[in-house]
Amino acid sequence: MKFAKIIMLNFAFLTLSGCVGGLTDRQDREYAAFENDGVLVEEKTPTLGALLGVLPGAGSFYTGNPGRGITNLLLWPFSILWEPVNGWNGARKINYDMTAYRLKKQHEKELLILEFQYKNGEIDNNEYYFKLQRLTQKYQYQY
């Protein structure tokens, strides 16, 4: 009886902890903005992640979560309830993170170029602040 309780508690814990959380509301809005602006870096396909999630642990393996993949493989067929969601959410998180990283690096690079132009006298004060404002607007994402 005690052994059965331990197994049930472990199963409940694994079931409740098995899901990859989705993006926050802010990240979800930014993700949509990335898509609309054509800057989304799609490293992983959410639909493919969800479809692979029908197979035991495959959605988690696809999104680089081998620990969850093994757990979900062991919990199959129950894991089919959450594994497609893991694949979908995991792919979107990867895409969000990669897009935010790329935009941050591009922003930093463009700021350095602008600073270099200003310090070398290639542009004056007014042009510098105008270009700085345009650059800020261009990278309006929160990343």
Rank of each mutant, 00 (worst) to 15 (best):
Q106C: 04
F116E: 12
S60W: 09
E108M: 12
N10E: 00
Q106R: 08
L9Q: 13
Q137Y: 04
K131P: 05
Y128E: 12
A100Y: 06
K138C: 08
F78V: 12
L135Y: 01
L55G: 09
K138Q: 11
A100S: 13
Q142F: 10
P56V: 10
K109H: 15
Q117Y: 14
Y129V: 09
T71V: 12
Q140H: 15
E127A: 11
Y139H: 10
V41Q: 09
A91R: 10
Y129K: 15
Q27N: 03
A33T: 03
W76L: 09
Y139W: 07
L73N: 03
L132M: 07
M1I: 09
L111K: 14
Y31W: 01
I70N: 07
Q142I: 06
K119A: 13
L103C: 09
G67Y: 04
A32H: 08
F11W: 14
E127F: 00
G22L: 01
M98Y: 13
N36Q: 14
G18L: 03
E35Y: 05
Q137T: 08
L132P: 01
N126H: 10
N72E: 07
P46H: 00
A58Q: 07
D124P: 01
G18K: 01
A91S: 13
L81A: 14
G53W: 12
R26T: 13
A100W: 07
Y96P: 05
N72F: 03
E83Y: 00
W76P: 10
A33D: 04
D124Y: 03
R29A: 07
L81M: 14
F13Q: 03
Y96N: 04
A58G: 08
A32D: 08
Q137K: 15
D37N: 04
F13H: 09
I94L: 07
I80L: 11
E43K: 08
F11H: 08
I94D: 01
K109W: 12
Y31M: 02
K93E: 12
R68W: 07
G57Y: 01
L132F: 00
L81K: 04
P66W: 07
I80A: 13
L132S: 08
E122K: 15
F13G: 08
I94V: 15
G22T: 02
K5P: 02
N89Y: 14
N65T: 00
G49Q: 04
A50L: 03
A58H: 02
